[in-house]
């Protein structure tokens, strides 16, 4: 049978959605692998056990803050400082989930609360990209989120278990993999010259703030500068060349 019968079309749509979710997150999941191994190796050096790394990846699930926390880790763990560091590094999530919330209006309240628990930079960007074209569905999210989540968990724990094999990511250019991926995802939101101006303003302000102020404030500063640029630009649909 070449064409699916009518009753199975809903299942086909679900399967296609799940497949699309999986394929869209796959590059990001692969790019995460070296970072997960490096994070694990750093954690092992700080005396964290694989089980502790498993708990952190499961409950926090935010790579940037996990790197900063492991970097700051001492014994006994300065829990308040680590919690505050995670708060600062992850403050951008408030903007991200606020933006995503508008695309989750057709989900129940508790479903939205569950979905945002699993939102990190990469799968959030993929969800936003998808939402720009189609309605987000559970099959799409289930094709994307569990794989991405378990992928991060598994590789961070493996990295902690095998320890110091991955010490120098810059030697292979791996440290640039996330930069390349985030740039690619940002270009995915391209909507004419306006987007270029938003990205340029955000980049310059974030870079300057990162030089001037210690810590992860540059993300918030750059994001707000880019958004301010969007608001201040003339609100016409046609953009000057």
């Amino acid at each position: 049978m070449v064409k699916p019968a009518e009753p199975s079309s809903r299942a086909d749509t679900a399967l296609a959605d799940a497949r699309a979710g999986f394929l869209l997150i796959l590059p990001a999941a692969l790019a995460c692998v070296p970072f997960a191994l490096i994070l694990g190796a750093m954690a092992a050096q700080k005396g964290l056990s694989p089980l502790e790394m498993a708990l952190m990846s499961t409950l926090v699930f935010a790579g940037g803050s996990q790197f900063v926390a492991v970097d700051l880790w001492t014994h006994p763990a300065p829990w308040l400082a680590l919690g505050f560091a995670a708060f600062l590094v992850n403050l951008r999530f408030v903007l991200m989930t606020a933006s995503l919330a508008g695309k989750l209006g057709h989900f129940r309240g508790w479903e939205r609360a569950v979905i945002v628990f699993f939102m990190a930079d990469e799968n959030w960007a993929v969800a936003e990209r998808r939402a720009a074209e189609r309605l987000l569905t559970w099959p799409f999210l289930l094709g994307m989120i569990p794989f991405f989540y378990v992928n991060w968990l598994a590789w961070t724990v493996l990295g902690t278990a095998i320890g110091s094999a991955f010490q120098n990511p810059a030697a292979y250019g791996f440290d640039f993999a996330f930069t390349a991926m985030f740039l690619a995802l940002a270009v995915g939101f391209w909507n004419g010259a306006r987007t270029g101006i938003v990205m340029a303003v955000s980049a310059v302000v974030a870079a300057l703030v990162s030089i001037a102020i210690e810590g992860p404030w540059y993300v918030i500063a750059g994001a707000f500068a880019g958004m301010a640029a969007a608001v201040l630009m003339p609100q016409t649909e046609t953009t000057p060349a």
Binding site: G64, R92, L95, M96, A98, S99, G102, D121, A125, E128, D175, F176, F178, T179, A180, F182, L183, L185, A186, F189, W190, R194, T195, V198, M199, V201, S202, A203, V204, V205, A206, A207, S210, I211, Y218, V219, I220, A221, G222, A223, F224, A225, G226, M227, A228, A229, A230, V231, Q235
Partner: peptide
């Protein structure tokens, strides 16, 4: 308008120190 600009602005800000404040190789790449 601000929220619509947010995804590209956040992603760019995250990578800006690596892309603009590390060295010419990173900026060119």
């Amino acid at each position: 308008v601000a929220l619509d600009a947010l995804p590209a602005a956040v992603l760019t800000a995250v990578v800006a120190p690596m892309a603009l404040a590390t060295g010419p190789a990173e900026t060119l790449a």
